[in-house]
């Protein structure tokens, strides 16, 4: 499973204006590895993925992909190097057709070779995407849109797939479909970074899971730590903290994040 790190976050610092969002995050993702990131709202999970994609700039540290720094790379350059994002809230193009959404996914491909084979794989994973490919994407259900969003990222044939809360707002049956597809994807040699609020499921699914809170890594867990609720609670909130206070802090952090993100 593990080899030299394919994607490497090295002491990453990100701030929104004067509000720090990430404090020195270091994570390495190897080829074919699944890395989970869990944590409360406002922990900096989405910021982390946005930084990798070049959608927010970082104030310190570095992100390296296959040994090369991604400093000053624009999001399209990052995508073309082989990192694909399934954004939070799916963010498919609602007024375009399913097919057109997939074609936009192909923009980041390096060359057109193997498109048909990859399409077969994607349609195999998500038959609904094939069935509805002529429909307007905005008319699909939430779960179908999520499948389309993953399909759109996969068709770019990325080395690293970033997923931001793929289970958010989905029915349990849909969540099963999403995780089943991720299980197939992990065996194709792609690395996966999955950000989730559903901690238990993510910890069980990922090879390693980092607990992020207040912009710092609080713990690193293996997949066998999934059942340990105490471990998770302490890593979320710290050993000394009672539950209500940090929760409030999470809300404040989220509000601060929202305020600073809107003008961007």
């Amino acid at each position: 499973m593990t080899g030299p790190a394919r994607l490497e976050l090295d002491g990453l610092h990100v701030r929104y204006g004067s509000v720090p969002a990430l404090h020195g995050i270091s994570i390495g993702v190897s080829g074919g590895e699944v890395v989970g990131i869990v944590g409360p709202n406002g922990a900096g999970k989405t910021t982390l993925l946005s930084a990798i994609m070049g959608m927010v700039s970082w104030s310190g540290g570095d992100i390296r992909f296959r040994g090369r720094s991604l400093t000053r790379c624009t999001p399209d350059q990052v995508a073309r190097q082989g990192i694909a994002l399934v954004p939070e809230g799916r963010q498919i193009f609602g007024d375009l057709t399913v097919d057109e959404n997939l074609r936009l996914g192909m923009v980041a491909r390096r060359g057109r070779d193997g498109v048909h084979a990859d399409l077969e794989v994607v349609f195999g994973l998500f038959p609904i995407v094939h069935e509805y490919r002529h429909r307007t994407a905005g008319l699909l259900s939430g779960g179908q849109q999520q499948q389309l969003a993953i399909a759109r990222a996969l068709i770019a044939s990325p080395d690293v797939l970033l997923l931001d809360e793929p289970s958010l707002g989905l029915a349990p049956a849909m969540i099963d479909i999403v995780f089943a597809s991720l299980d197939v994807i992990r065996h194709s040699g792609r690395s996966i970074v999955i950000v989730e609020q559903r901690a238990q499921r993510t910890i069980a699914f990922a090879d390693r899971t980092f607990v992020l809170a207040g912009g710092r890594i609080r713990a690193e867990l293996g997949s066998t730590d999934a059942g340990h609720a105490d471990l998770l609670r302490t890593s979320y909130f710290g050993p000394e903290a009672a539950a209500p206070e940090p929760v409030r802090r999470g809300v404040e952090a989220r509000r601060a994040k929202r305020n600073h993100q809107t003008p961007a």
């Binding site: 959608m55 995508a79 375009l96």
Partner: peptide, 12 residues
């Protein structure tokens, strides 16, 4: 439709 997402997909 969505400039940020288009760019994240590789659109120049």
């Amino acid at each position: 439709s969505d400039r940020r997402i288009a760019q994240a997909l590789g659109v120049r």
